[in-house]
Write a protein that binds this DNA or RNA. Structure first.
Lengths: 224, 224
DNA sequence: GTCTATAATTTGATAGAC
DNA sequence: GTCTATCAAATTATAGAC
């Protein structure tokens, strides 16, 4: 475990009048970190719905009121956790660029994506269901505004000629759907989730009609 | 609109002692229907999170207490709505069996599935996110326990030889992922959702590398 | 059958003492 | 900076009158 990204806060209009001792942002950041740590533990253990200011405060020996000195409100904490989780996922994917073979890289990415969702169900839910905060990432619209889409778009581009934006979006959707169903419908995976991912990949790798026999074994990854 | 399925209640231990006038289950069912109608309207308009016993009661001029005469608790209402929504989706899919061409039928099913999610976002959420009540449908485990999976499994079987259980599951996951992302990530669809569905279908129809030119135009359907 | 009244919780957020 | 005290809403569910 361990936090991955910290997210710089918008200084906004925080600590209003004057600060007694710790005017230094370093201390302030440290406290924010403690709060987020506690919040993350709650979400990972009990889900986002169980996250309340009181529980966070209790977990770190604070009063609920003190939290508002470091975060505007509950939503800001949720957004920070969401951004963290997204970054964590991106790291899990980035770790797969080591695979040089285009087809192998695509499989590695796909398996890593689903493995992440399986390993961190509540984090995944937080990012993609509970706090769908999009970071438009520049002003670009369309599917490519989503960082993960670009990862899959590049992986697809390395494969062959047909590389639409819709194609990459569809691939992402496939993996997202696999994770979501694994998290919400017990027994969806059947014997193994990897098997389902393999079936989906067969289509994108152009071996749809073949007997499911191929080179490049599944690369297990992710799970920070 | 209009309710689709009614769900027989488990008589359990409802109306305890004796009933004054309307002992007849017909009246009881009618009241249950009114309650569900109100509940459905709330969910469709404001989402499942906004569904409360008070709001339902207000909507039909009841007191909150009276609802408990017809439903065990809030969860039973939610489950009933979820079952309704699932049946509605199945109807939208069943309406596509008219398409005789195997490839065309698969496309029609896929487009109908996604169109349903797009047309009834809160209902879709209710069924697959908020109230993931599985109806194990016999005691069979595995992906085939899910009725919609069987629909896609049959459609795939008509296409060719390679028809795993994982394959059908993966196809369902793709469509589910497309709907979910369309509902949660603004701008995911890009110009059109159908385009994304087409891209996904290209893989399953074996024309992944082709230039996206094919017979059998998309069959718009669903939306009760 | 239906309502009134209410218990029992839980929540986010703030005012003001220290 | 931190806490105590508290407000203001909601919510589910039940007891008991009518």
């Amino acid at each position: 475990m361990g936090r991955t990204v910290q997210m710089e806060q918008t200084p906004g209009r925080a600590h209003g009048g004057r600060a007694g001792e710790a005017e230094r942002p370093a201390l302030r950041q440290a406290q924010r970190g403690r709060i987020l740590d506690a919040a993350r533990r709650i979400v990972v253990r009990d889900g986002f719905a169980a996250l309340s200011m009181r529980k966070i405060a209790d977990a770190i020996g604070y009063s609920p009121a003190s939290l508002y000195l470091y975060f505007e409100n509950r939503d800001e904490i949720a957004r920070a956790l969401g951004a963290e989780g997204y970054a964590q996922l991106r790291e899990a994917l980035d770790a797969q660029i080591q695979v040089v073979d285009p087809a192998g890289r695509l499989r590695a990415l796909a398996q890593a994506y689903v493995a992440f969702g399986e390993a961190h169900p509540e984090t995944y839910r937080l990012v993609f269901v509970d706090v769908p905060t999009v970071q438009p990432e520049e002003g670009m619209p369309g599917p490519d505004a989503e960082p993960v889409v670009r990862v899959f778009a590049e992986a697809l581009a390395a494969l062959g000629p047909t590389t639409d934006a819709p194609h990459a979006a569809a691939l992402w959707a496939t993996l997202h759907g696999i994770v979501m169903l694994a998290l919400t419908r017990p027994g969806f995976a059947g014997p193994s989730l990897e098997r389902v991912v393999e079936a989906a990949l067969a289509a994108w790798l152009g071996t749809a009609a073949a007997g499911r026999k191929r080179a490049g074994k599944p690369t297990r990854a992710a799970s920070t």
